[in-house]
Write a protein that binds this DNA or RNA. Structure first.
Lengths: 133, 133
DNA sequence: GGCTAGTTGAGAATGATTGTCAATCCCGGT
DNA sequence: ACCGGGATTGACAATCATTCTCAACTAGCC
């Protein structure tokens, strides 16, 4: 079903958002990305930032992360496959990690309890070396 | 530091919120809990619902869960210790699960990358038996 | 150069959550 | 039972991220 990715035109705004994402290594909120665009003098409407990010997520070009306060963070990821993140709470530095054992554990557990269509979220937060006092 | 839990008085409102939490087996949003209170004719101000839930979370009497859309869900849990949840996406039925291997894996991984003050979030979503078509 | 459907953006709307602050209530002391 | 004061409440405003609206704009194609 589908596979018919809706056509995405190449616009100045879309390119600008992608440029910011490519430059930033950390997870950033839509608001922060918008601010960065303004700072660069390459201003893009806030609505457009949200729309573009949603499209990128739908196309699996960007990863998302839900912060404790419910705000959504975005980041361009390198790994093609499913992976998790080890994120620094202060600076946002991110390490992509695999957790094959966790995946199978979660699936088996769910199956044992009669659940199907299983998915899971797993993120690790901490403080990286550079952010120690 | 601290240990001095601020005193919590016993009020009608606090009891009402706890009563609802005890009756419900699933994760529920603050808004839903507020609505349920009104339905019971045991109305409590929305601010108070939020305040009470925050206090309960601070006292480790209630567990929270962040839904995909960023809304916070609350539930009274039985396990004393740290645990995770297997939650049904349609009906909210919840199974409390342990994941000792995951804990150590996460901690070791974080340490290897020079992170400290590590915490993590892990929730499993699926569709329970009763909710199959 | 035009056509047209996808795209944009300013601002309004939504919805959860938090802040304000005067009125009210719990509870230990009396 | 009666006080007094600090904890608690609640109606409402304020905040904040995110989504919606819709007229104006533009990329890609003839």
């Amino acid at each position: 079903m589908s596979g018919t990715e809706p056509v995405r035109r190449t616009t100045r705004q879309r390119s600008a958002v992608l440029a910011v994402l490519d430059d930033l290594e950390q997870f950033r909120s839509a608001q922060e990305i918008h601010t960065e665009l303004v700072r660069r003098g390459d201003s893009v409407g806030l609505s457009t930032v949200y729309r573009t990010l949603s499209a990128l997520v739908a196309d699996d070009d960007v990863d998302t992360l839900l912060r404790d306060d419910g705000e959504t963070l975005y980041r361009r990821c390198h790994g093609e496959t499913h992976h998790h993140h080890l994120v620094c709470r202060s600076c946002g530095a991110t390490v992509e990690v695999d957790g094959p054992a966790v995946e199978t554990w979660a699936d088996r557990l769910a199956a044992e309890h009669g659940f199907d269509e299983v998915s899971h979220t797993l993120e690790i937060f901490g403080r990286c070396e550079k952010c120690r006092v």
